[in-house]
Design a protein around this nucleic acid. Structure first.
Lengths: 232, 232
DNA sequence: TTTAGCCATTGACAAAAATCAATAGATTTA
DNA sequence: TAAATCTATTGATTTTTGTCAATGGCTAAA
């Protein structure tokens, strides 16, 4: 994403791959455009807070965001790591109007916020847009089913292998990546304790499956990782 | 539900609390009515098969259904137990057209099946209906978030307590209930092994928290169960 | 009725994973 | 720069949980 694209204030020419953008006519695009506001978050800042009223559709123009559910005793589970082009629709929108998860910046992040009102207006006037939103939802749900299976049937090594494959395959889209996720974050993403995560990374490193140096990762044997993941 | 209501063939007078029914006009109702077909399943039968093409919106007129995701090595997780009045929209509908979970009858079940085409037609012409579908989806998703937290942060006793509270509170809606779920099913609902589930039920029974006699349950100290659930 | 098969239960044991404690490294703040 | 703070790492230990094996009961089929 270059600077010129990032700074565009026109939804019609926005580079975001926002599902449903292409179903919108000029009038609908201008509803979005008028409601939008650009906000920058610093690394560590909370973008969406679980329990608070949900007021925006959040589009990520640049940077990375972790989506997490806060549980008992300060612990949390990371559901998903979002990258540029992704967006967040809080599942409370047509329901109790509350956020049911939090989202925090794990790098500096540029966002474009669309008001719920504008979203709702377009949802109600453009059925193709509505369909694409439902589709987006369903995909999220499928990911949750997958995660549920992982949690209940796989042991730690399999879950950590999954996390590594997820980060390299879907988030950073490269076998070599630098992550701003802490070890605790990676543990929350795998649902293991921080110590266990570290031990497993060490094992993988010693077996030559991955290369780790601080937060710099290289997946060397992704087929082996896949086997570990499959074996549970 | 009495026989007369159950046998009604008219969507306008259907007693199902199907979200969005009240947003439909006569024309839309007749789209549903024309596409519908009534099917009876015997206990144990598969209603929706994971991986197969999804072709219907399934409304449950009577009986109970388990919604489960099949994982590795024949093991599965039960996501939800559905009761009369509930319905299932497969999350593949506007996406890959595949079912991402299975649904099986745990009693004899009466269903009303609406074709995807009819569903899609009404979804596209009635934005209030669309909104209620999205809302339904979001509620399902919130339940999944909750389950994710349970799985990753609670230990077995807390999860089994949750299962008992769920069955009595949401499914059978009574402190006293008879379930057709097997011990293995209850274990899959709690994500523990069958043996562990049995041991914990025994503990609860010996502590006087519940009364169990085969598949007949009575919750005697629901506050205690809630505390166990909260404690993790 | 008898046999076979499935489900529930129990005990013993092994594996898996979390917790606790201590240390080292890195980074921020005074 | 030094102190303070936070994160990462490692080892030792305990807790949690699953697996295996054996048994009894109930049901369904021959």
């Amino acid at each position: 994403m270059n600077k010129a694209q990032m700074l565009t204030n026109n939804c019609a020419t926005c580079n975001l791959k926002f599902a449903g953008f292409d179903t919108m006519d000029n009038e609908q695009l201008s509803v979005f455009k008028e409601s939008h506001c650009r906000v920058e978050y610093k690394k560590g800042e909370t973008i969406i807070k679980q329990g608070a009223r949900c007021s925006n559709l959040v589009c990520i123009k640049s940077g990375y965001v972790k989506m997490h559910v806060e549980g008992l005793g300060g612990r949390s589970v990371i559901i998903k790591v979002l990258k540029p082009g992704d967006f967040i629709i809080s599942p409370g929108i047509f329901d109790d109007n509350r956020n049911h998860f939090s989202a925090s910046a794990i790098t500096d992040v540029n966002t474009c916020l669309i008001s719920i009102d504008a979203f709702s207006k377009v949802f109600h006037t453009n059925h193709k847009f509505a369909e694409s939103i439902l589709k987006h939802n369903h995909q999220l749900m499928q990911a949750l089913y997958h995660q549920l299976i992982n949690l209940s049937h796989k042991k730690m090594t399999g879950r950590v292998a999954d996390t590594l494959l997820y980060l390299s395959g879907e988030v950073y889209q490269s076998n070599v990546f630098y992550t701003t996720l802490s070890r605790q974050d990676m543990a929350d993403l795998s649902s293991v304790s921080k110590e266990s995560l570290i031990r497993i990374l060490k094992d993988f490193k010693e077996s030559g499956i991955i290369l780790v140096e601080g937060n710099q990762f290289k997946i060397q044997a992704s087929t082996t990782l896949q086997k570990i993941s499959q074996a549970g």
